[in-house]
């Protein structure tokens, strides 16, 4: 174990054919294979019921994978170990702080059950609270803390035992928007600084993009795509990912002879041919009165501050969301010309 309290051993994690069938036959997770590098932050992203929390609980040791599955921390097979012997740090959506203990007692609990004497325990708890800038809260009761403070105490409690990996189960979901942004930055800073292997579960794509080295997008108990945030955003594997990560427009198109017919106009095209669905993000649709390929009518204009989200109806009868600069103003019924660069289009088989 390293002496520097701010650096962790980077422990890789490997899942081999981990599936989960609950009593009663519900398949919560199809067999999954996954390698997580030491020190990496991986985010499991997906809607509720997609299997992301089940995967996390299998890694934690709170659930057993179906026979045949195995979990490795480094070269050690931990499949048969219960959570209390895996030495993982875990942070929960509900904070799960112990209301019968104050902040310092909560943070020191893991050291207490490890039989570490009071003097060394106090020292390490003090060190940890100092690192999280919470020394002043040490003797507070849990019900005297704000939601953000509670989750920081939970983080400190998970980290002070120097776990091999850190598991975070929707840690920001219970917080309101403003606190969420602040704590997200703090978690990001902490994970980079500590170099600990971290696995983070969320349904919020913004959180996933901000924190992840790699995102694992899941749906219906399956992994749909694994990639960097940029990969997942710009090259979604399928319409589900494209739709779940950000907003997308889905358009009917026809490709032949190096041209793509979309929105009633032709653009140069080097991709697949035949009838296609193409996806395009609102921010990739330009308003251009001069070179715009198609004409459209504004049906909704929502001013969002930094931009205006327009919903327009094109001559072909398709509906399209467009992000326009915040300072431009629109009225319902306005006619606009829209332009799409072919390299921003993503073709999906119909």
């Amino acid at each position: 174990m390293s002496r520097d309290p701010l650096r962790f051993e980077p422990v890789p994690v490997r899942l081999n054919a981990c599936a989960k069938t609950f009593p009663g036959g519900t398949r919560a997770l199809e067999p999954i294979d996954l390698e997580i590098a030491g020190g990496e932050t991986v985010v499991f992203l997906g809607p509720s019921g997609c299997g992301k929390t089940t995967t996390l609980r299998i890694i934690a040791g709170l659930e057993q994978p179906d026979p045949g599955g195995s979990v490795f921390f480094g070269s050690e097979d931990v499949t048969a170990l219960p959570i209390e012997r895996r030495n993982v740090g875990m942070v929960f959506q509900s904070y799960a702080l112990f209301p019968n203990m104050d902040v310092a007692q909560n943070v020191g609990y893991g050291l207490r059950v490890r039989g570490i004497d009071r003097r060394r325990r106090d020292a390490r708890v003090g060190e940890m609270l100092a690192m999280m800038q919470m020394e002043a809260l040490a003797r507070r009761r849990i019900d005297q803390l704000s939601g953000g403070q509670r989750q920081r105490v939970a983080l400190a409690r998970a980290l002070v035992v120097r776990p091999r990996i850190l598991l975070l189960d929707e840690p920001l979901t219970a917080l309101d928007a403003k606190l969420r942004d602040g704590l997200r930055l703090e978690i990001d800073r902490l994970l980079r600084q500590l170099g600990i292997t971290a696995i983070y579960v969320t349904h919020d794509q913004g959180e996933a993009m901000a924190l992840a080295d790699r995102i694992v997008v899941m749906s219906g108990g399956r992994v749909v795509q694994i990639g960097t945030p940029r990969d997942v955003y710009f090259r979604p594997a399928d319409p589900f990912v494209a739709d779940f990560v950000g907003t997308t427009n889905r358009l009917q198109a026809q490709a032949a002879d190096g041209r793509l017919h979309v929105l009633g106009a032709d653009v140069p095209w080097a991709g697949a041919t035949g009838p296609l669905a193409v996806l395009v993000r609102p921010e990739d649709v330009r308003l251009d009165a001069v070179t715009g390929q198609a004409e459209a009518k504004v049906t909704t204009a929502m001013f969002l501050g930094d931009r205006t989200r327009l919903v327009v109806e094109t001559g072909t009868g398709e509906t399209l969301s467009i992000d326009a600069p915040g300072r431009a103003s629109f009225a319902i019924g306005d006619t606009v010309r829209i332009a799409i660069d072919p390299d921003r289009l993503l073709a999906m088989p119909l």
Binding site: A60, E84, R85, A96, F98, Y109, V113, V161, L167
Partner: peptide
Amino acid sequence: EAARALGAR
């Protein structure tokens, strides 16, 4: 679960 994660029997 949190207590168990921290190593409690």
